[in-house]
Design a protein around this nucleic acid. Structure first.
Lengths: 214, 214
DNA sequence: GCAGACCGGAACGATCCGTTCCACTGTTAG
DNA sequence: CTAACAGTGGAACGGATCGTTCCGGTCTGC
């Protein structure tokens, strides 16, 4: 037993293990393109049958939840990585660039509400918020972030970038980077700027995604 | 004949005429909230039966098209009104504020693709682009708009604002205004700004909405 | 007072999609 | 070598949704 031929792609077991990844990858691509896509589309994209999906996930909701949780974890990982960066403003900058490039936000936002979140997700979401707030604090400390920007503005910013969409995925990435650059410039300190209008976004105002969805 | 009682709200005719508006208003509200809402939802919101809808529109697609065309006309009207403003930068500013407040973009973007556009809409879309380009030109002339911003950036900007969404519509409006303020600050001229990355959005890159939608 | 505009809403038919089920295949344990 | 079986493809099912049609009823305008 145990890897009879040492080759990495032998046997049914290995094939199955590889399918694990293929399916997740396909699901990510498909649901990123259309959050309401049928499950069959995922199977087709992955080049497997529907059974291969149902063997791994209890149902569509289960798959969606896992996918979304992965996105959340990625977000946290990027935040932690950015916090290791010594320069405050660079950390802030780098973090946003990474998150936008990884398209984490689309997953999180467009999929939230299509499943009932686990408690662990709730905890992770809290941690994500804390990390983001820490990055914003440091950005404020650097003096490069305009004083009336708040942590929740990150949500707005990421949503804005995720909204950019053209048929070609690569081009989409470029345009999102452009959008991000504009937004970052808008959030930067300038001498004679008018203050941002209206009450700033509050803490709970974006968590509604993690709860209902009538 | 002709208005036997001079009152504004008498008779079946008047009721019918009023329904015209009520239905359009309901349709706007419903499809703004969910572009894939069933037609029955519009009828319910309007407080009328389904027949009242089908008496006025050949089908769902017809209603959607009309709704979207109205949005386009509103966009054009706002652009023309803004062009009458003497100060270049103020015109640019005012125009965007109005369009964001009127939520024109949501209609246009989320509904496009759900119907086959008429030729007149194609012409109107062209005119809209010309007017927007004129506003951008004037904004450039004022020296307040950063030189590497192009007309197509308006599309990106409006999309970003429309992406902001919370349950309460009024609050949504406030947050969009905030978003707009950040974006405008980002598009404003500042002395030592880094140039915007990547190739700028090109002319045809957003017209794909007006064509297919597999 | 009657023809018909106008309307409400039930009913229909088509479509779509999540899930189940079963036959099949190559693998692995003994 | 072979009997079990994990793993799979994909057809089929049942439920839900939704656009559209249709019919019976009501009130107006002449």
């Amino acid at each position: 037993m145990s890897t009879p031929p040492a080759k990495t792609l032998a046997g049914r077991r290995a094939q199955a293990a590889r399918n694990d990844e293929v399916i997740l990858e396909a699901a990510r691509a498909v649901f990123l393109d259309d959050p309401k896509a049928p499950i069959a589309a995922v199977a087709e994209r992955a080049g497997v049958g529907i059974s291969a999906l149902y063997r791994r996930y209890a149902g569509k909701e289960d798959l969606l939840r896992q996918l979304c949780h992965d996105g959340l974890r990625r977000y946290i990982a990027e935040a932690e990585a950015a916090l290791a960066e010594p320069d405050d403003w660079t950390a802030f900058n780098r973090f946003l660039g990474r998150v936008v490039d990884a398209d984490v936000h689309s997953l999180t936002v467009h999929l939230a509400g299509t499943f009932t979140p686990t408690e662990e997700m709730g905890r992770d979401a809290m941690r994500a918020n804390e990390l983001a707030a820490a990055l914003v604090d440091r950005a404020h400390a650097s003096g490069r972030l305009r004083p009336d920007a708040v942590a929740q503005d990150l949500g707005l910013l990421l949503e804005a970038c995720a909204a950019v969409r053209v048929p070609d995925p690569e081009r989409t990435g470029q345009l999102r980077r452009r959008q991000l650059a504009v937004l970052l410039a808008g959030l930067s300190t300038v001498p004679d700027a008018d203050p941002l209008p209206g009450p700033p976004p509050a803490a709970g105002e974006f968590d509604w995604r993690w709860r209902h969805r009538a």
